[in-house]
């Protein structure tokens, strides 16, 4: 069964159409790039998927269910902005995630923190911005979830941090789970993607396997993106 299905999904904010009749299917075991310029509807789609927004029209199903309490058990969400309780220590944060999510693998998280030399007694507010972003990604990827939603995980990080983030995503790969990565930095992520979805002004412009795009057009996904979204 598809991990995520959208049919005719539409969302308006006042008179602005953020999503306009979106049809998408995401199968298990896929790493999907949700690619589009700023304001194209990427974050709206992610927020509809995790139940932070309600659809205006159409349907969205996660594992065959409407977004709600049941689907939050299997959806692991990395928001665009940091949302860590910064008074906590790294160790307390792991306890916090474990309390909320039965699928949180504390040992996996502790292992990833120690590889970054982050001590459990270290307070989040004493960490650098880059470290906080890595800690947040570790919390999200240490869940044994069915669907990971990563909203702009590599926006504003240095190249070493970007490689760390992409490596963490690859090494957490699980054939029964899917990952959706929203970004406009395509050249940086395209090697790790199975499928790409181009979105513009709330409409899906192209949805295809990344390797097919490169093979058939003899161009990188990044080049095709620049052509499709030429101003």
């Amino acid at each position: 069964m598809a991990v995520l299905t959208c049919r005719g999904l539409t969302k308006k904010f006042g008179s602005t159409v953020a999503l306009d009749g979106v049809d998408i299917t995401v199968e298990p075991g896929r790493i999907v790039g949700l690619l589009g310029p700023n304001g194209s509807g990427k974050t709206t789609l992610i927020k509809l998927t995790n139940g932070l927004l309600q659809p205006g029209a159409g349907e969205i199903l996660i594992d065959g269910k409407k977004p709600g309490v049941e689907t939050k058990r299997i959806v692991s969400y990395l928001p665009e902005r940091s949302c860590l309780p910064d008074w906590m220590t790294a160790g307390e944060l792991m306890g916090f995630y474990k309390d909320f999510y039965a699928d949180f693998d504390r040992d996996a998280a502790a292992g990833m923190l120690s590889r970054l030399s982050i001590e459990e007694k270290q307070k989040i507010k004493h960490m650098s911005k880059g470290t906080r972003e890595k800690v947040q990604l570790i919390m999200v990827m240490a869940r044994r979830a069915g669907l990971y939603l990563l909203d702009e995980p590599i926006g504003g990080v240095d190249p070493a941090a970007r490689d760390y983030i992409l490596n963490t995503i690859i090494s957490s790969y699980n054939p029964s789970a899917s990952v959706i990565i929203s970004t406009h930095l395509i050249a940086d992520v395209e090697k790790v993607l199975d499928d790409v979805i181009f979105i513009s002004c709330g409409k899906i412009m192209l949805a295809a396997p990344a390797e097919d795009i490169r093979e058939q057009r003899g161009k990188s996904v990044d080049e095709v993106f620049r052509e499709v979204f030429k101003c």
Binding site: G29, R30, I31, D163, L166, N167, I170, S171, Y173, K191, V192, L193, D194, A210, E211
Partner: peptide
């Protein structure tokens, strides 16, 4: 598969393929 994917920095399904 996983080691190859991490080493080359590519998608695990690509390494598998």
């Amino acid at each position: 598969v996983r080691e190859l994917a991490i080493d080359a920095g590519v998608n695990p399904n690509t390494a598998q393929r």
